[in-house]
């Protein structure tokens, strides 16, 4: 589990690419443009990341990270992602995404995304942290200031893989439960945008120690 594909090369995508590279992952980055259009940019902002087309990046990788605007999720090809472990970092925010009927009033955008990406092992994480903190706030294991990162998904094995990924990137993973539980760290919850340690987040999620990674 050392190959990562990141779909999206914006603020979140490039921050995650740099973190994953320094954690020793092989990283491919794809956007809606051809790989050649991203090569130069990646060479400078995420040196070491491989510019790839989405299809190749997905096929080559163990973990696929969705770091594109939620408004574009329907441009993803579900058939390419069958059986893959997919990390959903996306949030719904109408003033930038535009109004999307299926997300209006939905408790968790990830459940909507999972319905579209049938057959993928979707795990929501990284969505509650500002993009620059993914880099600024990353800390080694055991560090007193290490922050917690919530992880939610319906596939227990995928959850563990993503938890290990989160850990290697510099955060304490906290499993909140199935994908539906990702509403507990969506926008408007106390976790969204807050800096919490593992203990604080567990308490906030009302978790007992059995649930923990």
């Amino acid at each position: 589990m050392h190959k990562v594909a990141i779909l999206g090369a914006g603020r979140v995508g490039t921050a995650l690419a740099r973190r994953a590279l320094s954690a020793g992952y092989e990283v491919r980055v794809a956007t809606s443009r051809p790989a050649a259009d991203n090569a130069f940019m990646l060479q400078i902002v995420a040196p070491g990341a491989i510019a790839a087309g989405a299809e190749e990046a997905i096929a080559e990788s163990d973990i696929i990270v969705l770091a594109l605007p939620l408004s574009k999720y329907r441009t993803l090809k579900p058939e390419l992602l069958q059986g893959k472990i997919v990390v959903d970092t996306m949030n719904y925010w109408a003033p930038t995404d535009g109004t999307l009927a299926e997300f209006e009033g939905a408790a968790s955008s990830s459940e909507v995304v999972q319905r579209f990406l049938k057959g993928t092992r979707l795990v929501r994480s990284f969505n509650h942290m500002g993009y620059h903190e993914i880099e600024d706030a990353a800390r080694p294991q055991g560090h007193a200031e290490r922050r917690a990162m919530a992880v939610a998904g319906d596939d227990p094995e995928a959850n563990l893989v993503v938890a290990a990924f989160v850990d290697r990137l510099g955060f304490d993973p906290v499993l909140s439960g199935g994908l539906a539980s990702s509403r507990l760290f969506a926008g408007g919850t106390p976790i969204f945008g807050a800096a919490m340690t593992r203990g604080e987040m567990e308490e906030n999620l009302g978790l007992s120690s059995e649930n923990l990674v």
Partner: peptide, 11 residues
């Protein structure tokens, strides 16, 4: 902004 966007204001 936090109230509108649903994030906790930084401490």
């Amino acid at each position: 902004i936090g109230r509108i966007r649903g994030f906790a204001p930084p401490p």
